[in-house]
């Protein structure tokens, strides 16, 4: 078994680990760092439940080996809220529109939507559907998720006018 030492930043905290080459990033996050919010839904890159931000860019953590993330900065669902008590605007909007049911796809959906809102605060419905198009949800039919992202964008536009910018 080939073991590799890695150092990576996850949700602003630096972690070191010794990982077998074959350990996927999603397994490392879940089992090594106990960040179980990121879910493994298919392990072959289709469902998107394992989406994370790698250096700010959304991708599948089941299609990366942990060793490949050495030196990278990762954001998982646990890193979206501003603090242990609060919710981000996006998370709160998901709650407001009930954009989830079983909650299994939700972390990946939030990551995909977060990436979208980092690039635009005026997404069209089509852009929202495109942004979450690689994330399957079996509960919601996507409607309340699209609503949530629109609501979050609205709120963030309002906040930006009022306060000069807040994070999604």
């Amino acid at each position: 078994m080939s073991l590799h030492e890695i150092t990576l930043t996850v949700n602003s905290a630096v972690h070191r680990g010794l990982v077998p080459a074959r350990l996927s990033l999603v397994d490392f996050l879940r089992e090594g760092l106990l960040l179980t919010g990121t879910h493994a839904g298919c392990e072959h890159g289709v469902c998107g439940a394992c989406s994370i931000l790698l250096d700010g860019v959304p991708m599948r953590s089941c299609l990366l080996f942990a060793v490949q993330a050495d030196g990278c900065a990762i954001t998982t669902v646990e890193g979206l809220a501003p603090g242990p008590e609060g919710l981000s605007v996006l998370q709160d909007s998901f709650w407001e529109t009930h954009a989830l049911q079983c909650g299994f796809c939700t972390p990946g959906m939030l990551i995909a939507a977060q990436a979208l809102l980092q690039s635009t605060l005026t997404p069209s419905d089509e852009e929202i559907r495109e942004a979450i198009g690689g994330n399957l949800c079996r509960c919601t039919g996507y409607k309340q998720i699209v609503d949530a992202v629109k609501l979050a964008a609205d709120r963030l536009r309002g906040s930006n006018r009022a306060e000069g910018g807040v994070q999604p």
Binding site: G37, A40, G103, F104
Partner: peptide
């Protein structure tokens, strides 16, 4: 707002895995 939503939104669900 549904009671159970909040924990899932912060990655705090407790699934068997």
């Amino acid at each position: 707002r549904p009671k159970e939503d909040r924990r899932f939104l912060v990655g705090g669900g407790r699934f068997v895995a």
